[in-house]
Design a protein around this nucleic acid. Structure first.
Length: 293
DNA sequence: CCACTAACCTGTAGGC
DNA sequence: TGCCTACAGGTTAGTG
């Protein structure tokens, strides 16, 4: 489900209510999601206070008073929601309508201002997973990630280094979390459209012989940054069931230029193209064959 | 090392 | 209505 903007939206929804909350009880309704919960997971969370939240790529991180970090990846269908919790603004309270058979983890929290609440992880496909570690460098999931696209570590020169010699198409190169961390199927198509680059172009084509980034690669870095910033501002994209923890849905899907818009006119000014859908590495890619080259 | 495929799992939409 | 297929926001394991 969620790419970087959706995960950041989830984090922002959780942050004011979980920061400072103590985890009173931890109930695992099964022993695994995509992978088994780590050894001693429930015991390590119980009794701890959540001191802060963070995000790296598509990973949610909860920093605990015990010095441990608890990591949550949402896979395709993972969601966090509150229950038994009276929001001060009742309109923001999420009333789940679905059955609860995919509620895999239930935490009871107590917060000094917000009182008692349940925090529930639901994940129909169970592609999500969790981890627990002392230092970020201990986590296999965090170790190989490329730069955060909204940090200074991400720029065209840095992309050029990683694209150099890469025969893989742009689509695959941008989905590779070791190249840029946090893009997924939607925002790769959107970023490539913004930069007017075809998704089937070999990544190395955007690197000059000197190893320096081409102007087009600069445009791509800008496209990645702007689409992510705008999507975060819009609260992410809601396709099927994505919701922030407060129950609000995102609205960036209304601003997609190409994703899921096969057959529609290209939104680039004066472009007469029609959006096409192709399959790359088994997944849909959307692009304009006229203004992307 | 790179590139590609299959696999993990459930739900839903669309065609007949 | 039912049945069947294709497809869905991600990542890893296995192959060549």
């Amino acid at each position: 489900m969620p790419e970087l903007p959706e995960v950041e939206t989830v984090r922002r929804g959780l942050e004011p209510y979980v920061t400072g909350a103590r985890i009173d009880t931890v109930t695992l309704n099964r022993k695994d999601l995509r992978f088994p919960f780590p050894e001693g997971f429930a015991e390590a969370l119980a009794g701890a206070t959540i001191e802060s939240t963070a995000r790296r790529a598509k990973y949610l991180l909860f920093r605990l008073s015990t010095g441990k970090t608890w990591l949550s990846h949402l896979g395709m269908t993972g969601t966090w929601r509150f229950e038994d919790f009276k929001f001060k603004e009742p309109s923001r309270y999420y009333e789940p309508t679905e059955d609860r058979k995919h509620d895999h983890l239930v935490l009871e929290l107590s917060h000094p201002q917000h009182g008692q609440m349940q925090l529930i992880y639901n994940d129909a496909r169970r592609f999500g997973f969790m981890d627990l570690f002392g230092d970020d460098s201990e986590s296999a999931y965090l170790n190989e990630l490329g730069p955060e696209p909204l940090s200074n570590a991400f720029n065209a020169a840095e992309m050029a280094e990683r694209f150099k010699g890469k025969k893989a198409p742009m689509k695959a190169a941008l989905l590779d979390q070791r190249v840029v961390a946090g893009l997924g199927n939607i925002y790769v198509s959107e970023a490539l459209h913004r930069a007017h680059i075809r998704p089937d172009l070999a990544a190395a084509k955007l690197v000059l012989k000197s190893g320096a980034p081409s102007k087009r690669l600069e445009d791509l870095a800008d496209g990645v940054r702007t689409v992510l910033i705008e999507a975060i501002d819009a609260g992410g994209s809601t396709l099927r069931d994505f919701r922030a923890a407060d129950g609000n849905s995102g609205y960036f899907q209304h601003r997609f230029a190409v994703y899921d818009r096969e057959g529609e006119p290209c939104p680039t000014p004066r472009c007469k193209g029609v959006i096409e859908r192709i399959v790359q590495s088994g997944r849909s890619t959307f692009f304009c064959p006229v203004c992307q080259h």
